[in-house]
Amino acid sequence: MRNAWARPGLQLTLCGLAGLLFTTELIVSELLTNAIHYGRPLVELRLIGHDVLVGEVTESNSTQPCMRRARTTDEGGRGLFLVAQLGARWGCRHSQNGKTIWSKQLVSWSVPASRGGSCWDQRTNLTTARTGSTPQSPSSGTGPIG
């Protein structure tokens, strides 16, 4: 996950949102883990900074995610619960080719007013194999928008 996180983490810092790094990384890692575990090889991570910070993970599995309450002895089942607790809202939208799971966080912008509270739209495609290897990120972001 570290390779997938490098560029978006830098973008958050450049936009004055370093205070959201830990929470955003945790939310995104939970969404990515689910996509890699349950989906098929191509996964896309997208972070959008505007009035809110939106993290989206798009993958090819069309099954609706289900938040559950894990028992203390369960090894898994806490991911979407964490996403729901840390973000302001979360949800799922379906498409012809799969689904996008998203999470929104409220932000207080400290970027220059000339940017109008809009920071970027960052996409990273992650190609993963079902071998347990770390996803590789070609960093295909569109960069800052202003």
Rank of each mutant, 00 (worst) to 15 (best):
M1C: 04
M1V: 05
M1P: 03
N3P: 13
A4W: 02
W5Y: 06
W5T: 00
W5K: 01
A6R: 14
A6Q: 11
P8M: 01
P8H: 04
Q11T: 02
L12D: 02
L12Y: 01
G16A: 08
G16W: 03
G19T: 07
L20M: 08
F22M: 01
F22N: 00
T23R: 10
T24H: 10
E25H: 11
L26H: 11
L26I: 12
V28R: 00
S29W: 01
E30I: 05
E30L: 04
L31Y: 04
L31V: 05
L31Q: 06
T33E: 15
I36N: 02
I36E: 05
H37F: 13
Y38D: 05
G39D: 09
R40K: 14
L42K: 09
V43F: 04
V43W: 03
E44N: 09
E44L: 05
R46E: 12
R46D: 03
L47N: 00
L47A: 01
I48R: 11
I48M: 10
G49A: 15
H50T: 03
V52P: 00
L53W: 06
L53Y: 04
V54N: 08
G55S: 13
S60N: 02
N61V: 10
S62C: 10
T63N: 10
Q64F: 12
R71I: 04
R71S: 09
T72L: 15
T72F: 14
E75C: 10
G79H: 03
L80Q: 01
L80E: 01
L82E: 02
L82V: 13
V83T: 04
L86G: 03
G87K: 02
A88I: 12
R89Q: 11
W90H: 01
G91Y: 04
G91D: 03
C92Q: 12
R93P: 00
H94I: 02
H94A: 08
S95P: 02
Q96H: 11
K99F: 08
S103M: 15
K104Q: 15
Q105L: 15
Q105M: 15
Q105E: 08
S108Q: 10
W109T: 05
S110A: 13
P112Q: 09
R115S: 03
R115C: 03
G116Y: 13
S118P: 00
C119M: 15
C119T: 06
R123Y: 14
N125V: 09
L126P: 00
L126W: 09
L126G: 00
R130T: 01
R130G: 02
T131I: 09
G132T: 08
S133P: 00
S133E: 09
P135C: 08
P135Y: 08
S137M: 08
P138L: 14
P138R: 11
S139M: 06
S140N: 14
T142C: 07
I145T: 06
G146N: 06
